[in-house]
Design a protein around this nucleic acid. Sequence first.
RNA 1: GGGCGAUUAGCUCAGUUGGCUAGAGCACCAGCUCGACAAGCUGGGGGUCACAGGUUCAAGUCCUGUAUCGCCCACCA
Length: 809
Amino acid sequence: MRPELPPRYEPASVEDRIYRFWEEGGFFRAEPAPGRAVFTIVIPPPNVTGVLHMGHALNNTIQDIATRFERMRGKVACWLPGTDHAGIATQNVVERELKKKGLTRQQLGREAFVAEVWKWKETYEARILGQLRRLGFSCDWSRTRFTMDEGLSRAVRVAFVRLFERGLMVRGKYVVHWCPRCGTALSDEEAERRERPGHLWRVRYPLKGGRGHVVVATTRPETMLGDTGVAVHPDDPRYRSLIGKTLVLPLALREIPVVADAAVDRAFGTGAVKVTPAHDPADFAIAQRQHLPAIVAMNPDATMSDAVPERFRGLDRFEARKRVVEELEREGLLEGVEDHVSAVGHCYRCDTIVEPTLSDQWFVRMKPLAEKAIAAQRAGEISFHPPRWERIYLDWLENVRDWCVSRQLWWGHQLPIWYCPNEHVTVAETEPESCAECGSSELTRDEDVLDTWFSSALWPFATLGWPEDTEDLRHFYPGHLQTTAREIIRLWENRMIFAGLELLHAVPFRDMIIHSTVLAPDGRRMSKSLGTGIDPLDVIAEHGADATRYGLLKMSSTQDVRFSYGAVEEGRKLANKLWNVSRLILGAAAEATPDLRPQALEERWILARIEATRAEVERLLGEFDFSHTAQALYRLTFDDFCDWYAEAIKPRLYARDPDALATALAALERLLALLHPIMPHVTEEIWSNLPAREARLIVSPWPEPEARFDDARDALGNAQLAARIYRRSGVRVNVLGDSRRIFEAVVRPQEDGQGDVDAEIRRVREEIARSERMLGNDGFVAKAPAEVVDAERTKLDQYRDELKALVGG
RNA sequence: GGGCGAUUAGCUCAGUUGGCUAGAGCACCAGCUCGACAAGCUGGGGGUCACAGGUUCAAGUCCUGUAUCGCCCACCA
């Protein structure tokens, strides 16, 4: 044994050193080469708002395994890293920081504030990239990008101009989700609906002239101050006579008409809808059709605007709600109130209830883009894993509405739009000299920035140099794999796809893995505010990066999973086990050279097992089944390699049998290669201790199937049979003793433990009987699929052979 | 209102187109200190596969319904 190898695998003393070796050796760099296939993943760029969480760790572990696997299979594997400026999210965290110092962004002014955010970005980007290294990820760091670096920013402007020129980027006045705390518009996807208990008030709107009234139902009474009509269904007999009549809006005392619109649901509420065009998208649509004006009843901060009666002005919307209800009650206009649960939009970044508000914003016209994406998907261009998410994605495309992309924020890509005093719009990639329409040189740039997801949409190609026609773009686009959590499908994945189709006429990747969300051990969401979060760095510090990666894979599946320390500990045990069996082999075989010279049964058997597992791992990784990959490798390492093979060859190792030494080293090499994508550090560290090997498992080839294992089937069958006999044997065999005896015993059972062979014979006979019963069943033979019947016949033959071996041997 | 997923051992989860006596890790029990590893080895106990029907020679697996939990979508104000 090599005294210099410690008896325990200590990740802390190994992982950083190994990582530096990889990075300094340039092994992650992806250089296109003639004749070599390419494999590309662009990292989902983490937000620079903070540090990575468990979801990132799982997501990126999957990407690293895919990257390392493809690299070992000989491809030029490019995993492009980077970070996202995360406009609204980062602006919010920096604002929160300022608030601790008693400052607001308004006090700083735009330029100084943005400078503060850049400082924040530098700090957190460095931390994030450090975390990615700590997990052992093999990113091509020479290609690291940021969504607001120069190249990406130019790509954003070019994309904006192209969409504008194609008529896909338009300015319009619509009701958008407005976050009064962030002070900006949001897209539909950024407003998260949550069911909240509330009330449904029924309010009388008197007819002009004093007789009669219409009762409307509302969940937001304060918005009535912005009502400009009441709508009923044209075929509703209750209200037919009122259509065209005039009502007096209570409190505001404004005259408003009763209009007919087919969008009204006769069955809900009273069948009469108050129309607030400026604060409800459905009402806005009705107002457009019925030519009703819009009155903006609220200010951007959700206080009541000057358009409402003076006594309500400046009141917060919820205070105003109380006051409106009180006054209605006092005037006897409140006909009733009931509890009502409704889905209320919340800002996805600050959780404030959003206020639908009429606003002037820029929109991407989605219909034409969605149509292309739908066509591409119908042609099967992207495979979803698991496939059920494809339906979710297509549903979104089929019901898509225009995408509001302008944000009233400071941190982000400023719109490439300039206005002249005549209100002409000039859209240009670089600052224009003069107005495109009237030639005026007095231009003002639009202050708004773009939705952060706009630059994200361009990430798969802008990171490779688009809009230039670069070498990288030609080699690495389209990419191959995208992995993500399900909530990102609508925010990001969809947008990468339609942007890629529109701007490069190609989808950005072929396979999309939707992986599980990692929950806290108690099943709640991992979140900082709940105190349920687990920091991947803490887990790494305790168990090592390899164990953490293994644990995440093991617990990953297609549904949500609870974080399990058990899975990580399993990974740590696996790393330690591998380390120690390597100590055993390396200690005995220090001078030998790896070389396959299998002679003994256990040697042919372990090589067959490694070969079978290689094929299994290839298949499982091809299906993106990482949990079973981890399980297969655990079995191979623990049960087969350590508990059986290593024990069996111990006597020959101690005796310095050159064939055993050489074969053990060669078998170990193959085992390490299979484990490397999942546990890169420990395998690399062991590899570097192998004789006559440079420390670079990372670029060593994935094991090839070996023709010389043709006889492995027999060896495998025998050994499995032997193992079964052994396990059922009542005879105590000391495994840590002369383990070769075990193999000899199980292979020649008649020499040792004769009674147990009888038990085995009984068992095989039972199996034969069962199989014969099945095959003797006419229904089974007649109705079961032919291959099932054939398989059963094959099994029966195998059992009969086993029996013959047992009885005849 | 619509849709999706889940329910298997004390815990976390596997279980392929229906086909042997439903598995793993952890935990638990018993034994083992032998020159890789006690973070080890060997063996063991533990399950009405949420419930009720149905299809089938055969159901954890397929169908229908029920219950519970979770998630997503939705302009019923």
